[in-house]
């Protein structure tokens, strides 16, 4: 390493933030150097695009093609046009899965963001053992999805679970969490939140620390309360990070799979007796690998994609409005 570049702190950035390359490329006249300048960038990005073409783009197109067929794994493939789509749109089971997915997403994400904000704010204070607290709330992230689901499913057990035991101390009757949508949604949402709230808090904390403290000092001088400062300064300044966090949660939330599958215990992909917590991802797997209706599953996958796009648009416009009055 001839050039000693130590880890740059944000302060070292002096130039404009957005810069797409050297201002003066290709001063060297020799052909080899020019070729290097012209061709190497493509060479550098090509591994990504080649692999993505095979394992990303090709499946996308192929799924679209399959979705136009009555397609069996090893059997007949009959072209049916848009039949799968029209059938799906009229399929109550599909919309039930959409409702579950969106429902779980909403009741998981909103408390998660609020809690993450609160935690980040708390961690941003002067307190002894900061690292210890940060590590502590990040710990759930390094456990595995399936492990979390196993533990929580046990905790939510109807007859011998700790949560029902705890609730029984307050006279609450034993709840069968899997039995109704609302309880199953809550149970699954807590699994998601338990694992991700700490991570999001750390990300938000990092962003919070880049907010200039002078802003707060000025506000303090004006007599603004801590709460007011939080909502008027902190939250608006976090907007880009919030957008990022919501973006990632949206994709994760709308493709939810492992938690509800493990919550059911057996991978039937049914999500309860009446599909109380069957998500769209489970619906797709059930159609493709339980009922072997590949075309139908592929059509559902495309509708899921559409759902994600809509979800991102809604969230984006919603998050953008945070602190919009600033």
């Amino acid at each position: 390493m001839t050039l000693n570049v130590d880890t740059p702190a944000p302060a070292r950035r002096e130039g404009p933030r957005r810069s797409s390359g050297p201002r003066n490329p290709g001063r060297g006249g020799r052909g080899l150097a020019r070729f290097d300048l012209r061709a190497t960038p493509y060479f550098l990005v090509s591994p990504y695009f080649l692999l993505f073409a095979v394992f990303g783009l090709f499946p996308l197109g192929y799924t679209a093609w399959v979705s136009l067929h009555d397609w069996e794994l090893a059997g007949d493939k009959t072209f049916t046009g848009l039949d799968n789509y029209t059938e799906l749109i009229a399929d109550g089971a599909f919309w039930n899965a959409v409702l579950n997915t969106v429902g779980i997403f909403v009741i998981a994400t909103i408390p998660q963001l609020v809690l993450a904000l609160m935690l980040a704010n708390a961690l941003n204070k002067r307190i002894r053992g900061r690292l210890f607290f940060r590590l502590g709330i990040l710990l759930p992230l390094v456990t595995s999805v399936v492990a979390v689901a196993v533990v929580f499913t046990q905790l939510y057990g109807r007859d011998y679970g700790m949560i029902n035991w705890f609730l029984s101390l307050f006279g609450v009757e034993a709840i069968e969490w899997q039995n109704q949508s609302w309880s199953a949604w809550i149970a699954i949402a807590t699994m998601i939140d338990w694992r991700w709230t700490g991570y999001n808090a750390i990300i938000l904390l990092a962003a919070m620390q880049t907010i200039p403290k002078d802003l707060y000092e000025a506000a303090s001088l004006d007599g603004a309360s801590a709460r007011r400062q939080f909502w008027q300064i902190t939250v608006p300044m976090l907007r880009p990070t919030l957008i990022f966090v919501v973006f990632v949660s949206t994709i994760g939330g709308l493709t939810l799979f492992a938690e509800p599958v493990m919550f059911e215990g057996n991978p039937t992909m049914a999500g309860g007796a009446t599909g109380q917590y069957q998500t769209v991802a489970m619906f797709i797997v059930k159609e493709a690998f339980r009922d072997f209706d590949m075309g139908y599953a592929s059509a559902a996958a495309w509708l899921l994609f559409a759902l994600i796009l809509i979800g991102i648009l809604i969230n984006y416009s919603f998050t953008r409005r945070i602190g919009g009055k600033k």
Binding site: V45, Y48, L60, Y62, T63, I251, A281, L304, I312
Partner: peptide
Amino acid sequence: SKILLGSILLTMMVPLQQMGIVPLY
């Protein structure tokens, strides 16, 4: 480069796990 980067951003929204399941299998 801008278009290529933009396309990567777009692909981040594709639920590959679900959309790829039939063809990849």
